Computed example of a mutant assay.
Amino acid sequence: MVKAPHGLAGLAVSGSVVVPEAELEERFSRSSGPGGQGVNTTDSRVELTFDLATSSSIPEPMRARMLERLRGRLVDGRITVSASEHRTQLANRRAARERLAEILGEAATPAPAQRRATRPTRGSQERRLQAKRSRSELKRGRGRLTE
Protein backbone atom coordinates (compact mmCIF):
# COMPACT_ATOMS: atom_id res chain seq x y z
CA MET A 1 0.00 0.00 0.00
CA VAL A 2 1.37 3.41 -0.96
CA LYS A 3 1.56 6.03 1.79
CA ALA A 4 0.28 9.50 1.08
CA PRO A 5 0.94 12.73 3.01
CA HIS A 6 -0.36 12.89 6.60
CA GLY A 7 -0.51 9.12 6.94
CA LEU A 8 -3.39 8.74 4.43
CA ALA A 9 -2.99 5.96 1.88
CA GLY A 10 -4.82 4.53 -1.09
CA LEU A 11 -8.20 3.10 -0.20
CA ALA A 12 -8.22 -0.70 0.32
CA VAL A 13 -11.55 -1.96 -1.03
CA SER A 14 -10.93 -5.70 -0.83
CA GLY A 15 -7.95 -7.98 -0.33
CA SER A 16 -6.56 -7.36 -3.81
CA VAL A 17 -8.13 -4.06 -4.87
CA VAL A 18 -6.78 -0.67 -3.77
CA VAL A 19 -8.13 2.63 -5.08
CA PRO A 20 -5.20 5.00 -5.70
CA GLU A 21 -5.11 8.53 -4.25
CA ALA A 22 -5.45 10.03 -7.73
CA GLU A 23 -8.98 8.64 -8.10
CA LEU A 24 -10.24 10.18 -4.85
CA GLU A 25 -11.45 13.76 -4.76
CA GLU A 26 -11.67 15.71 -1.51
CA ARG A 27 -13.55 18.94 -0.83
CA PHE A 28 -13.35 20.89 2.40
CA SER A 29 -15.89 23.23 3.93
CA ARG A 30 -16.88 24.70 7.26
CA SER A 31 -18.27 22.17 9.66
CA SER A 32 -21.32 22.62 11.87
CA GLY A 33 -20.01 20.13 14.40
CA PRO A 34 -17.77 20.55 17.48
CA GLY A 35 -14.88 22.99 17.46
CA GLY A 36 -15.89 26.05 19.46
CA GLN A 37 -14.98 29.37 17.92
CA GLY A 38 -12.60 27.64 15.53
CA VAL A 39 -15.51 26.02 13.74
CA ASN A 40 -16.26 29.38 12.11
CA THR A 41 -12.78 29.72 10.60
CA THR A 42 -11.58 26.19 9.83
CA ASP A 43 -12.57 24.08 6.84
CA SER A 44 -12.75 20.82 8.81
CA ARG A 45 -15.72 19.16 7.06
CA VAL A 46 -14.60 16.69 4.38
CA GLU A 47 -16.47 15.43 1.33
CA LEU A 48 -14.74 12.46 -0.27
CA THR A 49 -15.89 11.59 -3.80
CA PHE A 50 -15.00 8.54 -5.87
CA ASP A 51 -16.02 8.05 -9.50
CA LEU A 52 -16.92 4.37 -9.46
CA ALA A 53 -18.30 4.26 -13.00
CA THR A 54 -15.03 5.29 -14.69
CA SER A 55 -12.51 3.88 -12.22
CA SER A 56 -9.68 1.90 -13.79
CA SER A 57 -8.50 0.42 -10.49
CA ILE A 58 -11.54 -1.83 -9.99
CA PRO A 59 -11.94 -4.94 -12.18
CA GLU A 60 -14.95 -4.88 -14.50
CA PRO A 61 -17.05 -7.70 -12.93
CA MET A 62 -16.55 -6.22 -9.45
CA ARG A 63 -17.36 -2.70 -10.71
CA ALA A 64 -20.60 -3.92 -12.32
CA ARG A 65 -21.62 -5.60 -9.04
CA MET A 66 -20.75 -2.47 -7.04
CA LEU A 67 -22.65 -0.18 -9.43
CA GLU A 68 -25.71 -2.41 -9.11
CA ARG A 69 -25.60 -2.58 -5.32
CA LEU A 70 -24.87 1.13 -4.81
CA ARG A 71 -27.22 2.50 -7.47
CA GLY A 72 -29.31 4.30 -4.83
CA ARG A 73 -26.27 6.16 -3.48
CA LEU A 74 -24.63 7.06 -6.78
CA VAL A 75 -25.01 10.36 -8.61
CA ASP A 76 -23.73 10.09 -12.21
CA GLY A 77 -21.67 7.05 -11.21
CA ARG A 78 -19.98 8.90 -8.33
CA ILE A 79 -20.29 8.11 -4.62
CA THR A 80 -19.78 10.86 -2.04
CA VAL A 81 -19.16 10.45 1.68
CA SER A 82 -18.91 13.34 4.11
CA ALA A 83 -17.46 13.55 7.61
CA SER A 84 -17.70 16.41 10.09
CA GLU A 85 -17.83 14.69 13.47
CA HIS A 86 -14.24 15.53 14.46
CA ARG A 87 -12.64 18.89 15.21
CA THR A 88 -9.68 18.46 12.88
CA GLN A 89 -9.66 18.16 9.14
CA LEU A 90 -7.23 15.24 9.24
CA ALA A 91 -9.45 13.21 11.58
CA ASN A 92 -12.45 13.91 9.33
CA ARG A 93 -10.41 12.86 6.28
CA ARG A 94 -9.60 9.55 7.96
CA ALA A 95 -13.23 9.06 9.02
CA ALA A 96 -14.49 9.73 5.47
CA ARG A 97 -11.97 7.27 4.01
CA GLU A 98 -12.91 4.57 6.53
CA ARG A 99 -16.58 5.06 5.72
CA LEU A 100 -16.01 4.96 1.96
CA ALA A 101 -13.79 1.86 2.25
CA GLU A 102 -16.49 0.12 4.31
CA ILE A 103 -19.25 1.00 1.81
CA LEU A 104 -17.17 -0.10 -1.20
CA GLY A 105 -16.00 -3.26 0.58
CA GLU A 106 -19.55 -4.34 1.37
CA ALA A 107 -20.64 -3.66 -2.22
CA ALA A 108 -17.68 -5.62 -3.59
CA THR A 109 -18.37 -8.85 -1.73
CA PRO A 110 -19.79 -11.54 -4.01
CA ALA A 111 -23.34 -12.75 -3.48
CA PRO A 112 -23.69 -15.91 -1.40
CA ALA A 113 -24.17 -19.20 -3.25
CA GLN A 114 -27.72 -19.84 -4.38
CA ARG A 115 -29.63 -22.18 -2.07
CA ARG A 116 -30.77 -25.40 -3.70
CA ALA A 117 -34.32 -26.33 -2.76
CA THR A 118 -34.68 -29.69 -1.04
CA ARG A 119 -37.72 -31.71 -0.05
CA PRO A 120 -38.45 -32.32 3.62
CA THR A 121 -37.76 -35.87 4.74
CA ARG A 122 -40.60 -38.23 5.63
CA GLY A 123 -39.41 -38.28 9.24
CA SER A 124 -39.44 -34.49 9.53
CA GLN A 125 -42.94 -34.33 8.04
CA GLU A 126 -44.21 -36.96 10.48
CA ARG A 127 -42.60 -35.17 13.45
CA ARG A 128 -44.19 -31.89 12.37
CA LEU A 129 -47.64 -33.45 12.06
CA GLN A 130 -47.28 -35.24 15.40
CA ALA A 131 -46.30 -31.94 17.08
CA LYS A 132 -49.36 -30.30 15.54
CA ARG A 133 -51.63 -33.09 16.81
CA SER A 134 -50.22 -32.92 20.34
CA ARG A 135 -50.51 -29.14 20.39
CA SER A 136 -54.09 -29.40 19.19
CA GLU A 137 -54.87 -31.92 21.97
CA LEU A 138 -53.30 -29.63 24.57
CA LYS A 139 -55.42 -26.68 23.45
CA ARG A 140 -58.58 -28.76 23.18
CA GLY A 141 -58.04 -29.83 26.79
CA ARG A 142 -58.16 -26.19 27.88
CA GLY A 143 -61.79 -25.83 26.83
CA ARG A 144 -64.74 -25.42 29.19
CA LEU A 145 -65.92 -28.40 31.10
CA THR A 146 -69.51 -29.29 30.31
CA GLU A 147 -71.55 -31.20 32.86
Rank of each mutant, 00 (worst) to 15 (best):
V2H: 11
L90R: 13
L8A: 02
S44A: 15
E26I: 02
E85M: 09
R71V: 07
S124V: 00
E26G: 02
V13C: 02
R144F: 06
T41R: 15
I79G: 04
R45P: 02
A108G: 07
G33M: 04
V39I: 10
G15P: 07
V19Y: 01
R30C: 03
P5A: 15
L48S: 02
P34E: 11
P112N: 08
T54Y: 05
A91L: 09
E23T: 01
E25H: 13
A111T: 12
Q125G: 06
A113Q: 14
R78V: 05
A9L: 04
E85K: 08
F28E: 09
S82T: 01
T118R: 15
R27D: 10
G10R: 03
G38T: 05
M1T: 11
E102K: 15
L11K: 03
E68N: 15
E126L: 12
A111R: 11
L67E: 15
E26Y: 08
G15M: 10
R127M: 12
S124I: 00
P61C: 07
E102Q: 13
L11H: 01
A107D: 07
I103F: 09
L138K: 15
R87C: 11
Q114G: 09
S31E: 05
A107N: 09
S134C: 04
V13D: 02
E85A: 10
F28K: 05
R99N: 10
N40V: 05
V13E: 04
G36F: 05
I58Q: 00
S44Y: 00
L100F: 01
A107V: 03
Q130E: 15
